[in-house]
Design a protein around this nucleic acid. Structure first.
Lengths: 238, 238
DNA sequence: GGTGGAATTTGCTCTATCGCAAGCCCACCG
DNA sequence: CGGTGGGCTTGCGATAGAGCAAATTCCACC
């Protein structure tokens, strides 16, 4: 199992820069767990007992306000470190992680973290980068929400999803897990209705192809144009 | 100078958990620099040659879109670590930092970072927490922008500013540095005009007191009510 | 093969907020 | 001490997009 893990773990960015022996040491403390579709890996507000690396599948990370409003913070794909709440100084998870397809993750007890980074500085550096990237993404999202209209934001979101979890199909690029209009709305700060309208319009223009919890980008390039331009109907881009 | 620095640095969270000897070692590589009001500490897109700890003053960190739209990412107060772009794996600064009052910062060459965290794991842990907190704040901001109306967002923003950089005055709590309506707008994803209208209304209700680049919260408690409630005109809060 | 509920689509109305335009006021400069 | 420019206020449309309602489609499961 350790050797199996080692090969799977080979392309986990945060563990890069560690030699085989160190990797073994680290993996010794890990447990591999299966999460069936729609089950939660951890829940917002729960004690942050573990941190994880996703080996297989996709997770949706969502955050809920006291009033019940919800947003999708991000999607986690295989190879990513997640659930590092404790390392960031939190006692509880700030969000909920849900498997959107059957998934498998390695988990470590949070209390092993201080010792691990003491022993393997590369791990700390990796974690810092992971969190740093996440911060960049989130700030970019704030910038988008402040400066772009809904249509552009949706276009950006879909392109990002396609990049992160796109699967080439005959028709274009399909997002590789079930995702509803509601989910897209919660990623872009709008409503289910507006997303539906936008996708319908795009479908008519042959930009995307939709379905129940399914989105295929037929013309990513033209979509990108939409995302960049100020929504100008075409012809007078600057 | 080293001893002066050491006493100032005593309440820098990210350096807590280091003994005097280690602190000396770390401070040996640092330079102390003065940044006059309105000067920039670093610029978005410039090579990330240094990271910093703010000793004195306040900075505004802002990010600009290719199209020129701008947002205020956050304000930095004394004691905070900032400019850690390189540690997060970036080659260039993702934002611009500008002194809003005369300020002083310690700076280290970015290239010293890997060695420092190798030598002092506590430093890595501290940086991770700093960045983690920032991530939490930014995600909270996304949540706010998705779920709240402008008035609530402005209320929240002011309360946060008051907490971070509030100074008690006879009239209430004053934000301890010059901040324009435009700045508040760029923190909350709205426009100068809307912020002005909101503050005017609040001023009439005795909630705040305004001025040129100046905001005093006269009744933080009632403001908090505004921020929490769904903007209900009062009387039917739940 | 039928069926119930979730996901989606779509029309219509309503409004919060933007965008523009104009004028004001104060702090600082010369 | 008057001038001026930056910051602020305010009125008035215009509108993107939210909210509500209802119909439709599509599975998943019986």
């Amino acid at each position: 199992m350790a050797s199996l893990d080692r090969s799977i773990v080979a392309n986990v960015p945060v563990l890069a820069g560690l030699n085989a022996a160190d990797l073994d040491t680290i993996l010794r403390d890990a447990r591999s767990v299966r999460y069936p579709k729609d089950s939660s890996v951890f829940d917002q507000g729960a004690e942050a007992h573990s941190f994880f690396v996703l080996l297989h599948g996709h997770l949706r990370v969502e955050k809920t306000t006291p009033q019940g409003q919800q947003i999708v913070v991000r999607y986690v794909s295989a190879g990513e470190l997640f659930g590092v709440a404790q390392a960031m100084g939190l006692k509880t998870y700030p969000a909920t992680a849900i498997a959107v397809v059957d998934s498998v993750a390695l988990s470590w007890p949070s209390k092993a973290w201080p010792q691990l980074i003491g022993q393997f500085p590369a791990l700390a550096a990796g974690a810092l980068q992971t969190v740093g990237n996440r911060l960049q993404d989130t700030q970019a999202r704030v910038l988008e929400m402040s400066s772009e209209q809904v249509e552009q934001r949706v276009a950006h979101a879909l392109l990002r999803l396609a990049k992160q979890a796109g699967r080439k199909v005959e028709q274009g690029v399909e997002i590789d897990f079930p995702i509803s209009r509601q989910d897209v709305a919660e990623m872009t700060g709008t409503t289910l209705h507006t997303v539906s309208r936008i996708l319908s319009a795009w479908e008519q223009q042959g930009l995307v192809e939709g379905g129940r919890q399914r989105i295929v980008l037929r013309d990513p390039h033209r979509l990108f144009g939409l995302a960049e331009n100020h929504g100008k109907p075409d012809g007078e881009r600057r």
